[in-house]
Design a protein around this nucleic acid. Structure first.
Lengths: 253, 253
DNA sequence: AGAAACTAGTTGTCATGACAACCTGACCTC
DNA sequence: GAGGTCAGGTTGTCATGACAACTAGTTTCT
């Protein structure tokens, strides 16, 4: 049966700077998402896969580990690796609302409501690990998708980033994109999701009634070096927004 | 200086069934959380660590990978591994509310409001991948922590689990614990977090005013084999509950 | 016929070895 | 003094080899 391939179609490029295990992981992921690896089916076993692709078994294992982490496959000791029979969607990645929207095909627009330098409020100062009354850059944005307000975002960043996070930049694109363009890679964030009722100003801006519930998210992001980069306090109309995520259990438990 | 140790204190047990890398990861985690590895400091480098603990470097790397995944350390190519200078809290694990509460030292109690077999509603049937009007086990629980209602939980599980998920079991402990005791290991879940206002019955049960916002969570859990096991639709009073999580970016991006 | 023991196949763990890529700081040159 | 260059140290990647642990099915024994 000559149709056994499908994995080896997109061959691995040993000259590429992209690691082999990662190339393999991406090939497998596209194979799964495109359906050429049908749901619920077994993956070829690791040793055979390694032989076919001419890589070592640890490399194959590492590629599969990436997929398992993303919730696309499940490994079972003594059994094999099976393709998850469901489309479990985006894990809550370290992504911005802007990215999420553009990916979803919506063209988000931004209204910049505030852009100023202020003394850091207490919770912001502790969150960003700044001493006392350090001054920080504060800005507030209203994000609209297809004309409808979908989020009111309040952010604080250290003053050093004033040249990176410019007024013009914020109007045109997302915060995370601005940071990335300046070589700042966010690596880690801790966030908290809750709910509350809107204050009058918020209800007006988001075009909501006074009783309509809001989703709230507070997030502190850290860069490669572990330095806190951004403190965000955002609200979303619950009727137009929800957080989707997939959770994978530790393999040991 | 004899105080250099601290890692080797809790020695590795080669006879234990727990893998070496995992023992090491746990030792490091406790060292970090207890503060004996101070925030922002470098970890000993991998080769030295391997030498001291008499394990191979891949084993050390794997242990550190676990920590990096949990957001406790950050690895930097050419630099080293540093302890994240913040207490970033629990990732939204695949854990139950019951486990979370007992871990937090609260003694949760449960009131079982419903326990019955019903035809599966449409969304439940599709979520659990059941055909048509299959019958499922439905139950509803009110969870209290220190006397206060903290969650109203509605669940559906396939009828095959009726012997596992018993009325008595639900009154005494959590759903996930019941499943685990029967050898069912949840491996993956997709969940959605939103907010809305309570219905009258919900407000009464949770002791809330009609305007008080609720957090909602819908979750479908899958076991080792990728079979859907549980459909849950839960609500939490926003003033008493929030979701905390840490998000780690893919190392390659 | 039923239960226990065995076997084949798979993933899980661990070791060793080697080289590449990367960052920092010191040194040297201009 | 400013800039580039180099060396040392670190993590990143990959290969090979070996054995353990687990699962499911088959065979054998009672």
């Amino acid at each position: 049966m000559g149709a056994r391939r499908g994995l080896t179609d997109a061959a691995l490029d040993r000259a590429s700077p992209v690691p082999l295990y990662y190339q393999l992981a991406e090939n497998l992921e596209t194979a799964i998402r495109s359906g050429s690896l049908s749901s619920g089916s077994h993956l070829e076993n690791e040793i055979e896969l390694a032989r076919q692709l001419r890589v070592s078994r640890p490399t194959v294992r590492r590629a599969i580990a990436v997929l398992a982490n993303r919730g696309l496959v499940i490994r079972r000791h003594g059994i094999g690796t099976l393709v998850v029979p469901v489309r479990v969607r985006r894990p809550v990645r370290l992504s911005s609302l802007y990215d999420d929207l553009t990916e979803a095909g919506q063209a988000p627009t931004t209204r910049l409501l505030a852009y100023e330098v202020v003394p850091a409020p207490l919770d912001v100062a502790t969150g960003l690990q700044l001493s006392g009354e350090t001054r920080v850059l504060h800005f507030e944005r209203l994000r609209l998708a297809s004309g409808q307000p979908i989020s009111l975002m309040r952010n604080f960043v250290p003053l050093a980033l004033k040249e990176v996070v410019t007024e013009e930049g914020l109007k045109l694109t997302g915060l995370y994109r601005l940071l990335r363009q300046s070589g700042i890679h966010l690596r880690l964030a801790s966030q908290s999701i809750g709910a509350r009722s809107p204050r009058p100003r918020e209800a007006r801006l988001l075009k909501l009634g006074p009783g309509a519930p809001l989703l709230t998210m507070r997030r502190i992001s850290y860069d490669d070096a572990g330095q806190p980069v951004e403190y965000g306090s955002h609200i979303y109309p619950a009727e137009r927004y929800s957080f989707e995520m997939s959770v994978v259990a530790d393999s040991r438990t």
